[in-house]
Amino acid sequence: MNAVTPNTGLNERLNKLRAAVLGANDGIVSTAAVVVGVAGATSDARAIAASGLASLVGGAVSMALGEYVSVSSQRDMERAYIAKERQLHQDDPNGEFDHLVRGYMRDGLSRPTALRVAREMTATNPLRAHLKMHYGIDQDDIVSPWTAAAASFLSFFVGALVPLAAVLSPPAQWRVPLTFVVTLAALALTGHVSARIGGASPGRAVLRLVLGGAIGLAVTFGAGWVFGATVG
């Protein structure tokens, strides 16, 4: 029996892509909210830059750690399923074969067809057939928490650079408007990409992200402006 080791199969590629899209989206939104809020309170470029950099670094680390923990839990669960099915097959291979046949029958196959499919599927690797039937996983395509964490960290970092660069580049009077425009455009792009990955409607995903981002930025700017006016 082949050892269970992570590889770069379809599941692993999708895992990294998902982490990257979510990381970029969170980097854009969280950093934009911070710098716009601070820009509402003060025009001091150093204060805005410091808050943006803190949000970028802290958010990227936090995102990577969260992704690592989440994917590690998923990987541990998948490995537990693999160990369970391997033990069941060793203890009662005939019973497991019958279980597989019943699973195919529940999917709509007749018993003769289910028997034929089960024999063919278990001819070379019975464990793989059981894992796909019962859990929808592949023993040779276990997700890696390290690659997910790295993808999340890098994408958050890059995404956070977008609003940070936008708020620091122009003169003070253009900082907030330009950050709004750049941030919403970046959110529209990530919304389109995530929708295409998931097979959903890009229009609705983009609209949700852009509206949510606009509301979030408006609220944080307003809070910063009120705080700045009160302190000032």
Rank of each mutant, 00 (worst) to 15 (best):
E85A: 12
P163C: 12
P93S: 12
S155A: 15
V69F: 12
A205C: 08
A229P: 00
R128C: 05
G58T: 07
D140K: 06
H89K: 00
S72L: 13
Y135Q: 08
P170N: 06
I197F: 14
G198V: 04
T42W: 05
V193P: 07
R86E: 15
I28R: 04
L164C: 06
N15W: 00
M133K: 11
P6V: 03
R86M: 12
L184R: 01
H130S: 12
V206A: 10
G203S: 11
S169A: 15
P6M: 03
V162K: 02
G58A: 15
I197K: 09
V158K: 04
V162C: 10
A64K: 07
A32I: 02
F180C: 02
A47P: 00
Q173G: 09
K16V: 12
L53P: 00
R79Q: 14
M63W: 11
P126M: 09
S43D: 14
A195D: 08
I215Q: 08
L209I: 01
P126F: 13
L189H: 02
R46Y: 11
Q90P: 00
A229C: 01
G232E: 04
A64N: 03
I28W: 11
V61D: 01
A60V: 09
Y68Q: 00
Q87F: 05
L161P: 01
E78I: 02
G59R: 06
L161D: 06
R102T: 06
Q87D: 14
G199A: 13
A185M: 08
V35A: 12
T31V: 15
A229H: 08
G58S: 10
K132L: 14
V158T: 11
A172I: 12
L168R: 05
A32R: 02
M77C: 06
F221S: 00
S169E: 02
E67A: 11
V69D: 07
I137D: 07
F156P: 01
A218M: 10
L115E: 15
P163W: 05
N2D: 14
V219I: 14
L22G: 07
L127S: 04
P6I: 05
L189F: 13
A172G: 04
G199T: 03
N15C: 06
R204Q: 13
S73L: 11
A54T: 04
G37Q: 13
V21E: 14
R86S: 12
R106Q: 13
W225P: 00
L14K: 09
H89Y: 11
P112T: 08
T42P: 06
P6Y: 09
T183C: 12
